[in-house]
Design a protein around this nucleic acid. Sequence first.
DNA 1: TCTAAATAGGACTGAATTAGTACACATTCA
DNA 2: TGAATGTGTACTAATTCAGTCCTATTTAGA
Lengths: 159, 159
Amino acid sequence: MIRLGKMTDYGLLVMSQIARSSKAELHTARDLAIKCRVPLPTVSKLLKTLLQSGLLASHRGIRGGYSLVREPHLISVAEVVSALEGPLALTECSTNVAGLCDLEPSCPIRDNQRIINQVVRGALEKVMLSDLIRPMSLAAIRDNRGNLVQVSLAPGRMQ
Amino acid sequence: MIRLGKMTDYGLLVMSQIARSSKAELHTARDLAIKCRVPLPTVSKLLKTLLQSGLLASHRGIRGGYSLVREPHLISVAEVVSALEGPLALTECSTNVAGLCDLEPSCPIRDNQRIINQVVRGALEKVMLSDLIRPMSLAAIRDNRGNLVQVSLAPGRMQ
DNA sequence: TCTAAATAGGACTGAATTAGTACACATTCA
DNA sequence: TGAATGTGTACTAATTCAGTCCTATTTAGA
């Protein structure tokens, strides 16, 4: 249905792992790799990216490690996804300077993308990291007003 | 931010093109290719896929062509995207039979995916094809109750 | 009944992207 | 000073995707 790269999956996994402990606690790349069962170099790469995006803080040197810069309920899935998928152009045309695209000035693709992006982004902004750290029991997310909304996890076509 | 393949973009474009005329009218692959400025073989491929997904009906032979099976306001973007992106496993693990994944039984990746998919799908189900066929002026989509909701198309980081 | 126009289906290829690895360097603390 | 840890860059292998081509089938009309 919607394609999140493997890296993004791992990233969410790593972030939730960090989110499970107290905010101040430091986690080394090695520890996270073991706990998440993801190869160390890959975790390391992820952590660097998340650091650069300002979602993590790092301490170097022996006894170093990574920690969240905010509480889990203040970090949205949208932020993590944005960080890892990059400021992504949906297709090359989104990055065109005006005039390059021969469908200009009323490029319908571009409009479609804008609409869809807006909708999807809005949806992901409502899911917070704290919603992901209860592995088995989540059945609701927060709506715009912070109220819990039922999420149907009914069996069925999952795409 | 979210990656829809080029094919999906084209697909939405083609679908909206068909949706612009009356439901009964037939459109040949050639016509659609010209109007959408997408290569004919590509359009042809798209149409076949959309046909198999039950979103289009076809008439063979000379004077043949494709038409929508439902009114544009009854076809959601989610349906078109599902049809074109395939019954997509977000990562390989979504298709595993139980036991293959060593993170079982409480695979957090899987749960994350389920949550995110649910949220995104819900969002895309609210955008109908008819919302895409007003290229320049769309500023609102329908919410769960069918009311128009403002969509902020403010300039800014578009991911 | 023949022909042209159109869909149907599958095989193939080149290119782009991504996941993952490796290595050299920098920093911190005991 | 040395060990543990993060930082940054470059590279490679694998996968996926977009796009093309070819051939069969169906239909309408001359």
